[in-house]
């Protein structure tokens, strides 16, 4: 079972490789990847260095080209594929059928992984991508229970990668347009969710109002922690009750489920967080490396260490973790 870690820039890439990642995933600094954040990601030169650093240490590099191009922007997506192929990436992570088609036709020797943004949640949807584009691995959206993941693995020939840790999308990835409804930009079209340029913090006598464009996402009383206004994690009012109606600020942590995922035949566990710091990436990757080693050596004797949990909780949104959709009661 592979440990696949996030690389938002070269320092993070090195931190992940040094902490024991089997593969790192990265993207170019433009709308072709779903973490198109200011100051993040790679250009050709840094990606070349990153690939060399990873490959010298036996670590693979997967290039995320996982947004949905429209005709007017197609050349940028094509250039990303060509650049990645020239530099020798180990796989492309792709969501769009057009991009998959181009990769299949022009770079058949490079593995194609289906991005979580493709939103393939079931055996028949996976079959579509295997048949049409020879996809060898799929990253599952965070909507399935662990039992459903197990069932899927019994039925599909494709390798399965699941998210193990990091920020939690409460919506099925690739099918969420909340961000463009509010800001005009979404993960599908621009590689962003709740983009920073649309965020405003307004303080009045210690109370902070957080807005995304013109929409009030949350209000923090003096002393309350002010988080980033990801719009599904704001506090809203429904039926006169104020609260986290969609999801609270919390991180996914599936570390306790590792033996089940391992026994089921999951090919890789993915750590979310290309927008995080190198120190974060290093700490999370190190804990997960230990957990995977322990699990793969002897799944029956696997036990989650308190130290791991403490460290991961410190690195979680709101210091809270959840099993998310993997655990039925969360749904």
């Amino acid at each position: 079972m592979e440990l696949v870690c996030p690389a938002g820039n070269l320092p993070s890439l090195k931190a992940a490789v040094d902490a024991g990642a089997n593969a790192v995933y990265a993207g170019f600094g433009n709308a072709t990847n779903a973490r198109h954040f200011t100051g993040l990601n790679f250009d050709r030169a840094t990606l070349e260095q990153g690939i060399a650093y990873a490959h010298r240490r036996g670590c693979k590099l997967y290039l995320a080209i996982n947004t949905y191009p429209q005709h007017s922007g197609w050349k940028q997506w094509q250039a990303a594929l060509e650049g990645g192929a020239e530099l020798g990436v180990d796989a492309f992570i792709i969501a769009d059928g057009g991009v998959l088609e181009f990769a299949t036709e022009h770079f058949p020797g490079i593995r194609r992984h289906l991005s979580v943004q493709a939103s393939a949640t079931n055996v028949d949807a996976l079959d579509f991508y295997v048949t049409e584009y020879g996809v060898e691995r799929a990253v599952l959206p965070r909507v399935l229970t662990v039992r459903q993941v197990e069932r899927l693995l019994e039925q599909t020939p494709v390798e399965i990668e699941v998210f193990g840790f990091g920020s939690l999308c409460v919506m099925a990835e690739g099918r969420c347009y909340l961000s463009s409804y509010v800001t005009g930009e979404s993960p599908n079209t621009c590689g962003v969710c709740s983009p920073a340029h649309a965020v405003q913090w307004r303080e009045d006598h210690g109370t902070v109002r957080t807005l995304l464009n013109t929409v009030l996402i949350d209000t923090q009383a003096p002393g309350e922690r002010v988080g980033y206004p990801t719009l599904c994690k704001g506090r809203f009012s429904v039926n006169g009750q104020l609260g986290y109606a969609l999801e609270s600020p919390v991180s996914l942590n599936a570390i306790e489920l590792l033996p089940r995922l391992f026994e089921a035949g999951v090919a890789a566990v993915k750590i979310e967080g290309r927008q995080r710091s190198p120190a974060y990436v290093q700490r999370v990757s190190r804990v997960w490396r230990r957990a995977l080693d322990a699990c793969c050596a002897n799944p029956d004797a696997y036990a989650v260490s308190d130290d791991w949990l403490t460290e991961l909780a410190q690195l979680s949104e709101g210091s809270e973790t959840t099993l998310g959709a993997l655990h039925r009661p969360w749904q």
């Binding site: 949905y68 191009p69 429209q70 005709h71 197609w74 969501a95 769009d96 059928g97 057009g98 088609e101 181009f102 493709a118 939103s119 049409e132 690739g174 099918r175 599908n188 079209t189």
Partner: peptide, 10 residues
């Protein structure tokens, strides 16, 4: 998610 002519054609 059908955003471009290539996938439309497929």
């Amino acid at each position: 998610n059908l955003y471009n002519p290539r996938f439309l054609t497929r």
